[in-house]
Design a protein around this nucleic acid. Structure first.
Lengths: 219, 219
DNA sequence: GTCTATATCTAGATAGAC
DNA sequence: GTCTATCTAGATATAGAC
C-alpha cells in the first residue's frame, strides 16, 4: 500500500485537525486540478504544478509517488466531494433528482477549473490506455444507476407515462449535462448552464407526465 | 502566404489528379487525426505522427510549417468534409434537420479516430490560449445558426408549438450530440450512438408538436 | 519534508546536405 | 522532397544531502 494514500482517512478521523503535510497535499491537489483543466493529463507537468505550490518537482513526488498517482488522487478527491455534497442521499422522485442535478450544474459552473478538468479528462479517457479510462467508465455506470432508481420509481407509481424508456432518459440527461458543460467551457461568463439544464429538464418532465402538466417544476 | 496552404485549392482545380505531395499531405493529416484522438494536441508529437507516415519529423515540417499549422489544417480539412457531406444543403423542416443529424451521428460512430479527436479538442479548446479555441467558438455558432432556421420555420408555419424556445432547443440538441459522443467514446463497440440520438429527437419532436403526434418520425 | 543533482528521454524547430 | 544533425527546452523519475 501507498503511504501517501492513507492520509485522507487519517485526517477525517482526527476531524478539524490538519497537519502541515495534509495542508500541503490539499494545495498540490488544487494546483493539479488547475493544470489538468488547462492542458489535460499528458501535457501537464509536475514541475509546474509544484511551482504553483511553492515547492519543487522533487518535493511534490514526496506526496504523490508518480504523475499517475497524482491524477488518480485528484479524481478520487473530487469524486468524494461530489458524493458527500450531492449524492449521499438517494432521491425519492424524478423531480427531486432533477433538482439535485440543477444544483450540481450550478456548483460546477462556479468552479471553472474543476469543471474544465472533467471535460478534458472525460474526453481523454476515451482512449483505452488512459490512466483515467476505468475511472470514467465506472463513473458513468454509477451516475446511470443513481438516476435510474427514482425515474423507474416514478414510472411504477404512475407519475410518469408507463411506456417511458427509463434507461434512455437517464443516459440522455447525462449527455445533456456533459454537452452543456462543453459549450459552457468555451464562454463561462456568458453561458447560463444551470438555467439551460433546468429548461431542458422541465420540458422533459412535462413530456413524460401523463397529461403533460401533472407535476411541479424542478425549481 | 504559405506555400503548403494553397495545395488544396490546386488539387480541386485539377480534379482527379493527385500529385505525390498531395497524397503525402493527406496521409499526414490522417495520421495527425489518430494522434490527436489519442492524446489531444499538446501531448501529441510531430515525430510520432511523421513516423506513422514513414517520414521523419523534418520531412513532415516541409508540409506543415509548425505543429499548430498542422492542427488548424486538420480541423479545416475535417470541417470541409462535414460541410460537403451534410451541411451543403439547408434543411427545410425540423424533421429534415433531425434526419441529417442522425446521419451525422452514424457517420461519426463509423470513424472513431476522427470523432474522439473532436471530443478531446473541443474540451481542450475551452482554455482561451488553446490554438483551437476560436475554431470551436465559431463552430458552435455555425451549428446553432444552421439548425435554428428550420426549427424557427417550423414554429412559424405552425408545425411546432408557438411557444417553442428555438434557441434553447437547438443548443440542447447540440449538447445531446456531444454528450452522447463522449459516452460512446468510452465503449464504441457496444454503444448505439445514432440510435440513442434518434430516440431523443423523436421524443423531442413529439413534445414540440401541437397534439404530441402530428409529425412523422425522423427515420 | 524538502531540495539539489542527475540520468534518461523526448519535445519542436532550424539549417543545410543530398 | 526528404534526411541528418543539432539546438534548446522541458519532461519523469531516482538518489542522496540537509
Amino acid at each position: 500500500m501507498d503511504r501517501t494514500q492513507d492520509r485522507t482517512p487519517r485526517r477525517s478521523a482526527a476531524r478539524g485537525r490538519y497537519t502541515v503535510g495534509d495542508e500541503r497535499r490539499a494545495r498540490i491537489l488544487d494546483s493539479a486540478v488547475e493544470h489538468f483543466a488547462e492542458r489535460g493529463f499528458h501535457a501537464s507537468s509536475l514541475a509546474r504544478i509544484a511551482k504553483d505550490v511553492g515547492i519543487t518537482q522533487g518535493g511534490l513526488l514526496h506526496y504523490f509517488r508518480s504523475k499517475e498517482d497524482l491524477l488518480v488522487s485528484v479524481l478520487e478527491h473530487s469524486e468524494a466531494q461530489d458524493h458527500e455534497r450531492f449524492f449521499s442521499h438517494a432521491p425519492d422522485s424524478a423531480v427531486e433528482l432533477f433538482a439535485v442535478l440543477v444544483d450540481l450544474a450550478a456548483y460546477n459552473s462556479a468552479r471553472p477549473g474543476r469543471t474544465k478538468m472533467f471535460n478534458i479528462l472525460a474526453a481523454e479517457a476515451g482512449e483505452r490506455g488512459h490512466p483515467a479510462h476505468e475511472h470514467f467508465v465506472r463513473r458513468y455506470r454509477t451516475v446511470i444507476n443513481y438516476s435510474l432508481a427514482p425515474v423507474q420509481a416514478a414510472v411504477d407509481n404512475g407519475e410518469l407515462k408507463p411506456d417511458t424508456d427509463c434507461e434512455a432518459i437517464v443516459t440522455e440527461v447525462a449527455a445533456v449535462m456533459d454537452g452543456l458543460q462543453l459549450q459552457w467551457a468555451l464562454a463561462p461568463e456568458t453561458y447560463d448552464m444551470p438555467g439551460r439544464l433546468r429548461t431542458y429538464l422541465d420540458r422533459l418532465l412535462r413530456s413524460l407526465t401523463v397529461d403533460g402538466s401533472g407535476l411541479p417544476e424542478t425549481a
